[in-house]
Simulated assay, not measured.
Amino acid sequence: MKLALSNLALKADVSQDYLRTLRSRGISGIEVAPTRIAPWEELTNDVVDRYRATLAEADLVVPSLQALLFGINDAQLLGDEAAFDIMATHLKKVARIGTRLGANVGVFGSPRNRDRGNLEVQAAWELGRERFGKLARLVADEGFSLGIEPVPEFYGGNFVDTSDAVIQMVDEVGHEGLCVHFDTGCISLGGGSISDAIQTAGDRLAHFHIAEPKLASLRNPSIDHADAAKALKAINYDHWIAIEMLEPAGTASDDVLFSVDYAVKTYA
């Protein structure tokens, strides 16, 4: 199992000792939300290289990115040409940051940036397929890919918001720059079966999140993670699995290590 932890769960000034502790408990990668390193405009090559080197000192790599469009509110998948151009330009930058960090996939969640608005369902689908295709080709040129996440209504999703829709979109675009990403929290909150989704996706599944609703820790899980782990094993899943949770507050700081231990025990 290749297990990562989102840097959303880490303090901004995380120490080398703590990173080494994560490594000793079974974490071998850190999934990066880039603005947890620095604001977009400050993510220079030197800043990115220093972050990668810091992780490397603890024998950790960066397999993936998330929060790709955080703060880029004018970027719209289904908006006018200008809004889509903003998205394309930004994701080109994200892909370069990702590959410089060593990552080859980014989680495309961002429900506000893919809002369907007033578009009819079929019109939105056709436009989305065309534009996902453009984005796939764009990021693939940098050695990167976008993993579409099925974001449910609970998080404001209204376009490609189910596992079946993600699979269909990836199949119709048919390009290596676009892949299937599943999240236990998103699929559960959308009313789907994570086990069924995994089995349907099969070898199209390229990235996976262990997550609870609202990105809570795994201390009191509401999702059947054992069932998800069983399904992943059944399809011989061999890509990265990332724990997605927010940095705990106050006295709950040990929830990160608890969650890591739980994930190792459940998914290994």
Score class of each variant (00 low, 15 high):
1 M>P: 06
2 K>V: 15
3 L>F: 12
4 A>L: 04
8 L>C: 06
10 L>C: 02
13 D>Y: 08
14 V>I: 10
15 S>A: 14
17 D>H: 13
22 L>Q: 14
23 R>D: 14
23 R>G: 15
23 R>H: 15
24 S>T: 11
24 S>P: 04
24 S>D: 15
27 I>S: 15
29 G>Q: 05
30 I>M: 11
32 V>R: 09
33 A>T: 06
38 A>T: 02
43 L>A: 03
44 T>H: 06
47 V>E: 06
48 V>L: 12
49 D>A: 07
52 R>G: 07
52 R>I: 02
52 R>H: 02
54 T>I: 04
55 L>N: 11
58 A>S: 13
58 A>G: 10
61 V>L: 01
66 Q>T: 05
70 F>L: 11
71 G>K: 14
71 G>E: 02
72 I>F: 06
73 N>G: 03
74 D>N: 15
77 L>T: 11
83 A>N: 04
83 A>D: 07
87 M>E: 00
88 A>G: 11
89 T>Q: 08
89 T>R: 10
90 H>Q: 09
90 H>E: 11
91 L>F: 05
102 G>R: 09
109 G>F: 01
111 P>N: 13
115 D>Q: 12
119 L>N: 07
121 V>R: 06
123 A>K: 05
125 W>L: 13
127 L>H: 09
137 R>C: 01
142 E>S: 13
144 F>N: 04
145 S>P: 04
146 L>R: 12
148 I>M: 10
151 V>Q: 10
153 E>T: 14
159 F>K: 13
162 T>C: 09
162 T>F: 00
162 T>E: 08
164 D>V: 04
168 Q>V: 03
170 V>F: 04
171 D>G: 06
174 G>T: 08
174 G>Q: 09
177 G>W: 02
189 L>M: 15
190 G>C: 11
190 G>D: 05
190 G>Q: 08
196 D>G: 02
200 T>Q: 15
201 A>W: 07
202 G>C: 05
205 L>M: 08
209 H>R: 07
212 E>I: 04
212 E>D: 08
216 A>L: 12
217 S>I: 11
219 R>Y: 04
222 S>V: 09
226 A>F: 06
227 D>E: 14
230 K>E: 14
233 K>N: 13
233 K>G: 15
234 A>I: 11
237 Y>N: 09
242 A>E: 07
249 A>I: 01
251 T>E: 15
252 A>M: 05
255 D>S: 06
256 V>P: 09
259 S>N: 02
261 D>K: 04
263 A>K: 03
265 K>M: 05
267 Y>D: 02
267 Y>N: 05
